[in-house]
Amino acid sequence: TLFEALYDYEARTEDDLSFHKGEKFQILNSSEGDWWEARSLTTGETGYIPSIYLAPV
């Protein structure tokens, strides 16, 4: 399942991933609670993103 960003997000740590509204992600690991490891389909970068900023596509 792909997810789309509902809002912009600016990374706060080196493990976080910055993204823009409308960016799409492949989720790599969603077992860490509210922060999911994801790969951006726009940039190819991976990192942790807040799941509350996402909606399934």
Rank of each mutant, 00 (worst) to 15 (best):
E14D: 13
P50W: 14
F19P: 00
F19D: 00
P56R: 06
W36Q: 02
S40Y: 02
P50K: 14
A5P: 00
I27R: 04
I49R: 00
L41S: 03
E37H: 14
S31H: 10
H20L: 11
A5E: 00
A55S: 11
G33H: 12
V57N: 04
G22I: 00
Y7Q: 11
E32A: 13
P50D: 09
F25H: 00
R39P: 00
L17P: 02
E37S: 07
L6R: 06
L6E: 03
D34I: 12
K21E: 05
Q26A: 09
A5Q: 00
A11V: 02
E14A: 14
R12M: 12
F25D: 00
Y53S: 10
Y9F: 09
T13K: 14
S31Q: 11
D34R: 06
L41A: 05
G33R: 11
E23L: 01
R12L: 12
Y7M: 11
D34P: 10
T43V: 01
D34V: 09
G33I: 11
Q26I: 15
L28K: 04
A38H: 00
K21Y: 05
T46A: 07
H20P: 05
E14G: 14
Y48R: 14
L6Y: 03
W36Y: 06
T13W: 13
S40G: 02
E10R: 09
E45Q: 14
R39S: 05
W35I: 10
G47D: 01
I27N: 01
E14N: 12
T13E: 09
E10Y: 09
G47H: 06
V57Q: 05
D8L: 02
L41T: 07
S18F: 03
Q26Y: 14
S18A: 07
A55H: 10
W36I: 06
D15A: 14
L17T: 03
E45Y: 09
Q26L: 15
E4C: 08
D34E: 13
Y48T: 07
P50S: 09
I27A: 02
K21T: 07
F3P: 00
R39D: 01
D8H: 06
K21C: 08
E10V: 13
E14H: 13
D8A: 07
T42D: 11
T46Q: 10
R12W: 08
N29K: 08
W36V: 07
E23K: 01
L2E: 06
E4P: 00
I49W: 01
S51K: 14
K21V: 09
L6A: 05
A55Y: 09
T1H: 12
L2V: 13
F25T: 00
A55D: 06
V57I: 12
D8C: 08
T43R: 04
I49D: 00
D16H: 15
R12T: 13
S30Q: 13
V57S: 07
F25C: 01
T1E: 12
T46D: 03
E23F: 03
L2R: 05
R12I: 12
L41F: 06
W35K: 11
L54M: 10
Q26W: 14
F25Q: 00
W36F: 06
I27F: 03
F3M: 08
D16R: 15
D34M: 12
N29P: 04
E32G: 14
S31K: 11
A38K: 00
T42E: 15
T43I: 01
T42H: 11
T46H: 08
E32K: 14
I27H: 01
T42W: 11
S18R: 04
L6D: 01
W35S: 07
L17R: 03
L6F: 04
D15I: 15
Q26M: 12
A5L: 06
Y9N: 02
L28P: 02
S30I: 11
L41C: 11
A11F: 03
H20M: 11
G47S: 03
A38C: 11
K24R: 14
A55I: 13
I49T: 02
S40F: 03
S30G: 10
D34G: 11
E32R: 15
S18P: 06
D15S: 14
R39A: 05
A55C: 09
Y48F: 13
F3Q: 03
A55F: 10
G44L: 07
G44M: 07
F25E: 00
A11D: 02
F25G: 00
F19T: 05
H20A: 11
Q26N: 07
D8S: 09
F25K: 00
G47E: 01
L17Y: 07
G44A: 04
A38V: 15
T42L: 13
S51V: 11
S18W: 03
E45K: 15
G22S: 04
L54E: 01
T43Q: 02
P56Y: 06
N29T: 08
S30D: 13
N29A: 09
F19M: 13
L28G: 02
T13C: 15
E23W: 06
D16Q: 15
E14V: 12
Y53V: 09
L6W: 05
E45T: 08
P56V: 09
T1Q: 14
N29W: 07
S18M: 03
Y7L: 10
R39K: 13
N29E: 07
W36M: 05
E37N: 08
N29D: 13
S40H: 07
I27S: 01
L2F: 10
Q26C: 13
I49P: 00
F25L: 05
L28R: 03
E4I: 15
P50E: 08
A5W: 01
D15G: 15
F3H: 05
R39I: 13
R12D: 10
L41W: 04
F3I: 01
R39G: 01
H20Q: 11
Y48N: 07
S31M: 13
L2K: 04
Y7P: 00
E14T: 13
H20V: 13
W36S: 01
R12Q: 15
L6G: 02
E45L: 15
E32N: 15
T42C: 11
L17I: 11
S40C: 07
A55G: 10
T42I: 10
E37P: 06
T43P: 00
E10N: 11
Y53E: 02
W36L: 06
E23V: 02
L17V: 06
P56N: 05
T42K: 13
F3G: 01
T43N: 06
S51C: 11
G33V: 12
R12A: 12
K24Y: 13
E14C: 13
L54I: 09
Y48A: 05
S31W: 10
T1A: 13
I49L: 08
L54Y: 01
A55W: 10
T1R: 10
F19E: 00
K21F: 05
Q26R: 08
R39Y: 09
Y7E: 10
G33K: 14
L17G: 01
F25Y: 02
P56M: 09
L6P: 01
S30E: 08
G47W: 04
E23H: 06
D15N: 15
Y53A: 15
W35L: 10
S40P: 00
A5Y: 00
Y7G: 07
L2M: 10
E4V: 14
D8I: 02
K24G: 03
F25S: 00
D8F: 04
L6N: 04
L2Y: 11
S40W: 01
Y53W: 06
E23I: 01
L17K: 03
T43S: 11
L54S: 01
F3Y: 15
R39T: 11
L28T: 07
I52Y: 14
E10S: 10
E37M: 15
Y7F: 12
E4N: 03
K24V: 15
E37R: 09
D16E: 15
E37Y: 15
I49F: 01
N29Q: 07
A11M: 04
T13I: 07
Y53C: 10
E10G: 06
E14P: 13
G47I: 04
T46C: 08
Y9G: 04
L41P: 02
F3V: 06
F19C: 07
Y48C: 10
S18T: 10
Y53K: 07
D16G: 15
Y9Q: 02
G44R: 04
N29L: 06
I52A: 15
S40R: 13
T43W: 02
R39E: 05
N29R: 07
A11S: 13
Y9A: 02
L28Q: 04
S51R: 13
V57Y: 07
N29S: 11
W35E: 05
Q26D: 08
